[in-house]
């Protein structure tokens, strides 16, 4: 990526992070929503706590709608998709119109879900479009460094979410090793020490998740 400016690297990296955040959020939403229908109406409170989402919701229904579709809530799925869109649309020349199209379509789809009586249908479509986005990125973007910068964003985001959700150490190890394998194929300014520490910590059963989390946040510090 010979002509990558820091601004472009930043947008590509955050595009990957937000797309992954949307994907992971939809997955969590699907399982929570299902249980909210007829099981534990208070269940969402625990989810909020785990993900650091302020519980300003009045009911399970209020949570279910707002966390998916409320554009005034910066933590909602739709808000995160907008952030992905903001980063994608300025990268048309790098990721191609074809790849960008899947972000446009996902946004159109989630907007339709706002009025739906069965929002999981539209969210399923958004998830499908995210898969298509990744496939298209691999197929249409020749520049490996561009592809990998977006994927590094995805890996860092996934690692962050896994840590928040107290995932198995095995899952953490897999994600860290993917990060290590790919990060040097990009021009991203990153903190190698933090990456190596994080890699060592996930291997060490005695290390605390909170400490790993802090280390992960340091891997790609804000560089703009």
């Amino acid at each position: 990526m010979g002509t990558a400016t820091l601004g472009k690297l930043d947008s590509l990296y955050w595009l990957g992070r937000y797309i992954e955040r949307v994907y992971q959020s939809i997955n969590m939403y699907k399982s929570t929503y299902d249980r909210l229908i007829d099981q534990d109406a208070e269940l969402y409170k625990g989810e909020c706590e785990k993900m650091g989402i302020p519980d300003n919701f009045t009911s399970a229904q209020d949570f279910a709608w707002k966390i998916a579709f409320d554009t005034d809530n910066p933590l909602s799925i739709i808000s995160n998709l907008y952030r992905a869109y903001d980063n994608a649309m300025v990268m048309r020349d790098e990721i191609s119109s074809e790849t960008l199209a899947y972000v446009h379509l996902a946004l159109a789809e989630i907007k339709r879900g706002k009025k739906s009586e069965a929002p999981l249908m539209e969210l399923q479509n958004v998830e499908d479009l995210i898969f298509a986005f990744w496939g298209c990125l691999d197929d249409k973007v020749d520049n490996e460094s561009v592809r990998n910068t977006v994927k590094i964003g995805k890996r860092v985001e996934r690692l962050d979410i896994l840590l928040r959700r107290d995932a198995d150490r095995e899952d953490l190890q897999r994600e860290v090793s993917r990060l290590v394998a790919r990060i040097d194929t990009t021009c991203l300014p990153y903190n190698r020490k933090a990456l190596l520490y994080a890699a060592a910590m996930v291997e060490d059963d005695s290390s605390d998740y909170e400490d790993i989390k802090k280390m992960v946040w340091d891997i790609v510090p804000p560089f703009l």
């Binding site: 990526m1 010979g2 002509t3 990558a4 400016t5 820091l6 601004g7 690297l9 300025v90 048309r92 020349d93 021009c187 991203l188 300014p189």
Partner: peptide, 21 residues
């Protein structure tokens, strides 16, 4: 290359794109 004003710099009356490399 799509650029913003902050991506360009002028040195010795020549214009350069500021890349990570």
């Amino acid at each position: 290359v799509l650029v913003y004003n902050t991506d360009l710099t002028v040195e010795d009356d020549k214009v350069y794109l500021k890349t990570a490399a």
